[in-house]
Simulated assay, not measured.
Amino acid sequence: MDSIAQLAQQYFLLKMGVGHHQPSIDWALERLRLDQEGDDLDIVMLAAATSREEAAPLIEAILQTHLGISAIDDRFAAGKYIALLRTAYLDGKETIESLDEKFTKLYHKLEYPDWLVMLSRNCEYATDIPEFREPFEQEFEYVATLWAGATSPTDFESKYSRGVSNSHDVKYG
């Protein structure tokens, strides 16, 4: 099915608390418009959904049918999302303040992954302490670049260095 990865990404964002249900409904409407729903009634029902409560279980059922629920890897989706957020930040569509909220939610929902420690911390500090802006941007570039090129969580982890992340800190003295 075309663009099922797009629906999986939207579901991840919804599940992490940083997305909205409407893009998934729009996805289903587009499938109907293009006559790509086949005999999947969950897609038809998703197109008619009006709330997160209606949409979420339908999205999950669609992903289970077409990908298998194990195909949705939260770490990988989070990493790809961070790469997209960096592009949005560089384009001026995201701010340190808006990123801080998103990174905090991801950090907690993903149960505190090591690779997100310095990014989340530096972003939080940069909202109030100007000296942290540069370390935040260095860490953001580092992590986002690794995730952008990663083909799997294992691929990312083989290239990620906590030592490099730790070097992205304010230098006093």
Rank of each mutant, 00 (worst) to 15 (best):
M1G: 13
T65Q: 10
W147F: 11
A48Q: 14
Y125Q: 12
Q10H: 14
S120P: 00
G19L: 10
L41F: 07
T95V: 03
L29S: 13
L119I: 02
P113C: 07
W27H: 09
K80V: 04
F136R: 00
R75W: 09
A71N: 09
D73I: 13
I69F: 13
D35H: 13
E30P: 02
A148C: 03
Q10L: 14
T151W: 00
D74N: 07
V18K: 05
D40M: 03
D40F: 02
E134D: 08
D26N: 10
E139H: 11
L90K: 01
L90M: 11
L67A: 09
D2H: 07
G68W: 05
D91L: 07
S98T: 15
D42M: 05
P130A: 14
K171E: 14
P57S: 05
T65K: 07
D73P: 00
L58T: 02
E37T: 12
A144Y: 08
A126F: 03
A5N: 15
T50F: 05
G149S: 02
K159S: 13
S165E: 10
G17H: 10
M118N: 09
L58V: 06
D40L: 14
D169C: 07
T50K: 13
R75K: 08
L41I: 08
M45Q: 14
F12A: 12
Y160N: 00
L85F: 09
A61R: 10
R33V: 01
A48S: 12
R52G: 05
V117I: 08
